[in-house]
Amino acid sequence: HESKLSILMDMFPAISKSKLQVHLLENNNDLDLTIGLLL
């Protein structure tokens, strides 16, 4: 999960990174759901 998140972070600009982190917190680190929201 950690490395997947790092790769994902590299793919998005800074603003999207903050949104990603907020979504991860709100969704209890449900990375798949977060990716779904961003794609």
Results as ranks from 00 to 15, higher is better:
residue 3 S to H: 12
residue 30 D to R: 06
residue 23 H to Y: 07
residue 20 L to C: 10
residue 32 D to A: 08
residue 2 E to Q: 14
residue 17 K to M: 05
residue 26 E to P: 02
residue 8 L to K: 00
residue 6 S to Y: 15
residue 17 K to D: 05
residue 19 K to A: 10
residue 19 K to Q: 11
residue 35 I to M: 10
residue 31 L to C: 04
residue 13 P to V: 00
residue 24 L to D: 02
residue 31 L to M: 06
residue 10 D to I: 08
residue 6 S to C: 15
residue 6 S to G: 10
residue 1 H to K: 15
residue 31 L to Q: 03
residue 12 F to S: 01
residue 27 N to I: 03
residue 27 N to S: 07
residue 24 L to V: 01
residue 32 D to V: 05
residue 2 E to C: 15
residue 37 L to P: 09
residue 34 T to M: 00
residue 22 V to S: 10
residue 3 S to A: 07
residue 30 D to G: 02
residue 32 D to K: 12
residue 24 L to R: 01
residue 16 S to K: 08
residue 36 G to L: 04
residue 26 E to W: 02
residue 30 D to A: 05
residue 4 K to G: 06
residue 1 H to R: 15
residue 19 K to N: 14
residue 34 T to N: 05
residue 38 L to A: 04
residue 13 P to I: 01
residue 37 L to Y: 12
residue 7 I to D: 15
residue 39 L to K: 15
residue 31 L to T: 04
residue 23 H to V: 07
residue 18 S to K: 11
residue 19 K to G: 05
residue 35 I to Q: 08
residue 29 N to A: 09
residue 12 F to D: 00
residue 5 L to W: 01
residue 20 L to G: 01
residue 14 A to L: 10
residue 2 E to M: 15
residue 27 N to T: 05
residue 15 I to A: 07
residue 18 S to V: 15
residue 32 D to F: 03
residue 34 T to E: 00
residue 13 P to S: 01
residue 15 I to W: 11
residue 5 L to N: 02
residue 14 A to P: 04
residue 4 K to A: 08
residue 39 L to G: 14
residue 20 L to M: 06
residue 8 L to M: 02
residue 33 L to E: 13
residue 18 S to I: 15
residue 34 T to L: 02
residue 18 S to T: 12
residue 33 L to M: 12
residue 9 M to D: 06
residue 8 L to T: 02
residue 27 N to C: 11
residue 39 L to H: 10
residue 28 N to H: 07
residue 34 T to G: 02
residue 29 N to Y: 11
residue 34 T to I: 03
residue 38 L to E: 03
residue 11 M to Q: 09
residue 22 V to M: 12
residue 14 A to S: 14
residue 23 H to R: 08
residue 36 G to F: 07
residue 21 Q to N: 15
residue 9 M to L: 14
residue 13 P to M: 02
residue 30 D to L: 02
residue 34 T to D: 01
residue 11 M to G: 02
residue 21 Q to D: 08
residue 11 M to K: 07
residue 34 T to S: 06
residue 12 F to T: 03
residue 25 L to V: 13
residue 15 I to P: 00
residue 9 M to G: 12
residue 4 K to C: 10
residue 35 I to F: 02
residue 1 H to G: 15
residue 29 N to E: 09
residue 39 L to T: 14
residue 4 K to D: 14
residue 29 N to Q: 13
residue 7 I to Q: 15
residue 13 P to A: 03
residue 10 D to V: 05
residue 11 M to T: 10
residue 7 I to V: 14
residue 21 Q to G: 07
residue 23 H to N: 11
residue 39 L to Q: 15
residue 7 I to M: 13
residue 26 E to S: 08
residue 22 V to C: 14
residue 30 D to C: 05
residue 25 L to E: 13
residue 38 L to C: 08
residue 23 H to M: 07
residue 39 L to V: 11
residue 35 I to W: 03
